[in-house]
Amino acid sequence: MLRSVEKEISKGEVIARRCSSFFYISDKITIGEAAELFLDNSHIDVLGVTDEDRLVKGIVLRNDLFSLIGQKFGRELYLNRNISEVLKEAPLIYYRRNTFSVIEEISSELNSPVNRYYVLVDDKNRFCGITSSRDLVFFLSDMMRREIKMTQSIHSSLVVKAIREESSSFQIFGAVMPAGDIGGDFQYCRCINNERWFFSLCDVSGKGLNAGMIAGAVSGMYAVYDFSKGLSDILKRINSHIYDLFGGEIFLTGIFFEVDELDFKIRLFDMGHSFLYILRDGRLYAPSTSKENMPLGVLPEIEPEEVLIKIKSGDMIIAFSDGLIEQTNISGEPFGQQRVLSFVSRYRNTPPEKIWKLIHSDFESWRMGNSQSDDVSMLIMKIK
C-alpha cells in the first residue's frame, strides 16, 4: 500500500532537490491502514494521497492522524473510514521550479514556528514528492554555512595577518587581529618599483560576511591595479564599488600612502580614518588637510585630497584602528590612544615589530580575559 516515486536526479537548483519525502498512498485505503503504515515506518511524518493516476488529493500527517484516533472512541469511530476524511490541503508546486523563486514566494511562511508542507507535482499534476518549510530553512542554513566557509577561505588567502618589509630607507611592520573568523580590518603592502611602495591600513564598518567580502575585494583590486594611475584613481574605484553594493550603509575608513624613496616623500590619503601619527624629533603630530576626506562608500562620488609629507631619517609613521584603543578591560575602561602613543614614543629606537609586540602584550594583559570586541590592526614604519 505504501508507494514511492523515484527520486529524479535534477540539474540546477530546482525545488525537486529539496524533497524530504517521496512516499504516497492511495485515496482508497482506510484511516486504520494508513495508521499501520505510519507505525511500520517511523521515519515518515507525512504522506501524499493520490488517486490511481497519481493525481494529488492531499496529504495526511502522522501527528494529526494519531491525535484523531487517540481520542475517546477514536479507534472505533475512525479506523474503518476512508482516508479522504482526514486529508489536509497543501500547496502544489511544479517540481522543476527554481528553489530560490519558491523561497521568495513563501518567505513569510519560513518564519512560522509551524512546519508547512508543499506537494511537488509534474506538468500533469502527478505526485512527485513533498518538501516543507523546515526543509527549505535547513537548505538555506546549510548554504549560508558553506558560503561562510568559502568566504573565510577567500578572506584568508587575500588578507594578510602581518606585514614585514625593509628597504634601504625604511622598516615597516603591520599586524591584524580579527575579532572573529572574518574580519573587516586589513592591510596591504606592495612594491610598485624599485623606489616606490604602497601601503594601506583599512577598517570596514561592521563585521561578518559583508566586511570580509569588501576586505577581500579591495585586496584583490590592489593586486591588479596599475599604480602609475595614482592613488586618487584607485580610491575612487573602491568608493564606487562599495557604494554600488551597499548604497552608503557600509563604508570603509583607511590610511593609504605611497612612499617615494628617491625624494623621501610620502603621498598620504586619510579617508575618514584619523588614527595616523608621525613621530619626529621626539614629538608626535597628526598630519592635517584643508578638508576632511569622507570614508569610502558613503557618497557616490568623491574627490580625495592628499597630504604630501617630506620625511627624514628617524621619523616614524604610526597608524592603527579604533579596535585597538576602544577595547575595554573587565572594568569597562578603554585601552586608549594615549597608551598606544606612549609606547611608540618610549620605544622609538626599537624595531617596529618589537614595538608592536610590546603593545600587543600590554593589550592582552589590559583586557584581562575580556573578549576582544573589535578587529585590531596597526602599522608602524620607521625611516632609517
Rank of each mutant, 00 (worst) to 15 (best):
A16G: 04
K11W: 12
G74C: 04
K7M: 06
I69A: 05
S4D: 15
A16L: 11
N63R: 14
F23T: 11
N41K: 13
R17N: 12
S20V: 14
L55I: 13
V56L: 04
K72I: 14
K57I: 10
L68H: 11
L47C: 08
L61Q: 08
C19T: 15
A16M: 07
V46E: 02
E33N: 12
N63Q: 13
I59T: 01
E76C: 03
A35D: 00
L68V: 14
R75W: 07
T50I: 08
D45L: 12
E13H: 11
N41S: 14
D40V: 01
I15R: 02
V46T: 08
L47T: 07
G58C: 08
V5T: 14
D64W: 10
V56M: 02
K88I: 02
F23M: 11
V60A: 06
K57W: 11
L55C: 09
G12F: 10
L68C: 13
S42W: 02
S21D: 05
E36M: 06
R62E: 10
V86N: 05
T50F: 06
L65Y: 05
V46M: 04
C19L: 15
I15Y: 03
I59N: 01
S10M: 12
N41E: 11
L61D: 05
S21P: 00
D53F: 13
T50H: 08
I44K: 01
L65V: 01
L55Q: 08
V56R: 01
K11E: 12
S4Q: 15
E52V: 12
L68E: 13
I25Y: 02
F22P: 04
G74T: 02
H43S: 08
I9M: 08
R54N: 11
K11P: 05
K88R: 11
I83C: 00
V46G: 04
Y78G: 04
E85M: 01
S10T: 11
V14L: 09
T50L: 08
E85N: 00
I69S: 03
F73W: 14
G58H: 06
V14W: 00
N63F: 09
L79R: 01
E85L: 02
I15N: 02
T50E: 07
G74D: 04
R81K: 05
Y78V: 05
F73G: 14
I15T: 02
V5K: 12
L37G: 09
E6S: 14
S10V: 14
R18H: 04
E76M: 06
D45S: 15
S26P: 04
F38Q: 03
D27V: 08
S10G: 08
K57F: 11
I15D: 02
F38I: 06
V49C: 03
K72Q: 13
T50K: 07
E76D: 12
K11L: 14
R54A: 06
G58M: 09
G74L: 06
G48L: 14
Y78W: 15
L61I: 12
K57A: 10
G74H: 03
N80L: 04
E85G: 00
R81V: 00
S67H: 07
C19F: 11
G48P: 09
K57T: 09
K7N: 06
I44C: 07
R62T: 01
I59M: 02
E8C: 04
S42K: 09
I9L: 12
R18G: 01
I25S: 03
E13I: 13
D51N: 15
R17T: 09
I25P: 01
L87T: 04
S4G: 12
K11I: 14
I59P: 00
A16Y: 05
S67P: 00
I29N: 01
G12N: 10
L37P: 02
